[in-house]
């Protein structure tokens, strides 16, 4: 564990707490201009469920196991909240990204490009590819509405920072322990790249007190 990865993981936790806070505070997932994509959240739940199939078999540390349990539980809780508790305020007409294509694409790629052709390994690879594109429905929704509430942009900023710090962590690990993981690296680079446009607007507008609005 290094500082980059620790802070990255903490930013990931922060993003989840921001999301839960926002949902509890507004008692809805669809306050004006602040929509959270159900598809993105459902994809994240799928990512954690397929990645942590080794939860009981592969013990790394108490930290690792606790985080895995938290990610699975919180993602399922968020999906539950959106699907049942705040269902009336979740507007599927804005959540129109074709998620089935990215699920299908990630599944097909996981079957072809993986480290070993076993059920667990393919599921793990699928989760890596799917995580890379899971934010797309949310970003697509943002593009469609053209603006976002500040708290939603903080959520995306925390998520983007978590991914960016993982890139730094991999460079650090390569030099310090000769750690190599091409599947994770390429998927991670793609995932971080998706945040570039968002980061640009976040830094130039939101941090200067302006509303998040697409040009």
């Amino acid at each position: 564990m290094n500082l980059f990865r620790l802070v990255a993981d903490l930013m990931h936790l922060v993003s989840i707490f921001i999301l839960l806070l926002k949902m509890q505070k507004t008692r809805s997932v669809a306050g004006r201009c602040s929509r959270i994509s159900f598809k993105t959240q459902a994809l994240y739940a799928t990512v954690f469920l397929t990645r942590y199939t080794d939860l009981f078999a592969n013990f790394q540390s108490l930290y690792n196991t606790t985080m895995k349990v938290f990610f699975i539980a919180s993602s399922l809780y968020i999906v539950f909240l959106m699907k049942f508790k705040f269902k009336a305020t979740n507007d599927p007409r804005l959540d129109t990204f074709k998620a089935q294509y990215v699920v299908g694409g990630a599944a097909a790629l996981a079957l072809i490009v993986n480290y070993a052709f076993t059920v667990q390994e393919v599921l793990w690879t699928f989760s890596i590819y799917l995580e890379a594109v899971a934010i797309l429905p949310q970003l697509f929704m943002l593009t469609k509405t053209g603006e976002a509430e500040v708290i939603t942009t903080h959520y995306l900023f925390a998520l983007g920072t978590y991914r960016g710090l993982y890139l730094v962590n991999w460079i650090y690990r390569y030099w310090t322990e000769y750690y190599v993981d091409w599947i994770v690296w390429i998927a991670g680079a793609v995932q971080t790249g998706l945040y570039c446009d968002f980061f640009y607007i976040y830094f130039t507008k939101v941090l200067k007190g302006a509303k998040f609005e697409l040009p």
Partner: peptide, 10 residues
Amino acid sequence: EPVKHKKDEL
């Protein structure tokens, strides 16, 4: 020799 991926990351 590169270390095989260890799956110690989240």
